[in-house]
Design a protein around this nucleic acid. Structure first.
Lengths: 137, 137
DNA sequence: TGGATAAGTTTTATATGGCTAACATTAAAT
DNA sequence: ATTTAATGTTAGCCATATAAAACTTATCCA
């Protein structure tokens, strides 16, 4: 029985970013991770080592970074949450897109599985109520 | 023009806790703050000094803690968010109450004002759609 | 092929925030 | 009033995560 140490928001953000870069550019480079997360290259190296120690990424100094199956699983979970939350904020709440994106970025770490699952089901029910917006302004 | 340094989640949690204790017990004691936040008394003292330095609380060594108007404003904002989010999770999504509370605790820090405002408006529109749950068997 | 430049790394320092344990103060009980 | 227990504080340490700047390795290209 290994205790599952919860991943910090930070780690989730790194994994999500690496997944996005992998998808976009085939591989993730340190510099691009730094840019996306708006931090310095030196800080990235430190975290990559920690992620590798946790077996979430494959990492060799001066090499490209790829996600392990475990890392990818987590990254995809977060990516999915991001998509759902941003969509809710942008399309349903009509928050401006940039802000919807930023906010989704923070909310995606805050929900436990049960709550998120129920949230997804909830959103599906909204379609059954096309005139819901009547009451707004 | 002073730049408004954003408050950490942590600080928001302290303020929210102090408000709750103030309301419950008239006054907030270090020990109770520690208990509510599940940290040690010594850690609380350190943070109280920082909150006082930021003029968010009134603090004298060995004295009681009270919120300044500024601190109270923030605490009430967070408390309100907590209420709304927990209510949404518990009553609408039907997440179990304890989990709804925990999750609200995290989500309350993740939303910007615009998003939260629209979220509140959105929840209000749900009443206009009483049969929405049909699809959820 | 040998610089120049870009990318990656290392080291040192900073900030946050928690813990432990010893110490100080306050409050309660006898 | 004095002792005891509860509460609050201090000091030193640890972990996380970032920045700055110097250094190393790769890459490009003339």
């Amino acid at each position: 029985m290994e205790k599952t140490v919860p991943l910090s928001e930070n780690i989730e953000d790194y994994l999500e970013t690496i997944l996005a870069l992998q998808t976009q550019n085939t591989v993730a480079r340190s510099k691009d991770i730094a840019e996306k997360l708006d931090i310095k290259r030196g800080s990235v190296t430190g975290m990559l080592k920690k992620l590798a120690a946790r077996k979430l990424i494959n990492y060799e100094p001066y090499g490209y970074v790829t996600l392990t199956p475990e890392g990818e699983k987590i990254a995809k979970k977060i990516e999915y949450r991001h998509t759902v939350l941003k969509d809710f904020l942008f399309r349903i709440l009509e928050v401006d897109e940039a802000r919807a994106d930023e906010t989704a970025c923070r909310m995606e770490h805050a929900m436990d599985s049960q709550s998120f699952k129920k949230f997804v089901e909830f959103i599906a029910t909204l379609d059954a109520c096309p005139y819901r917006k009547q009451g707004m302004e």
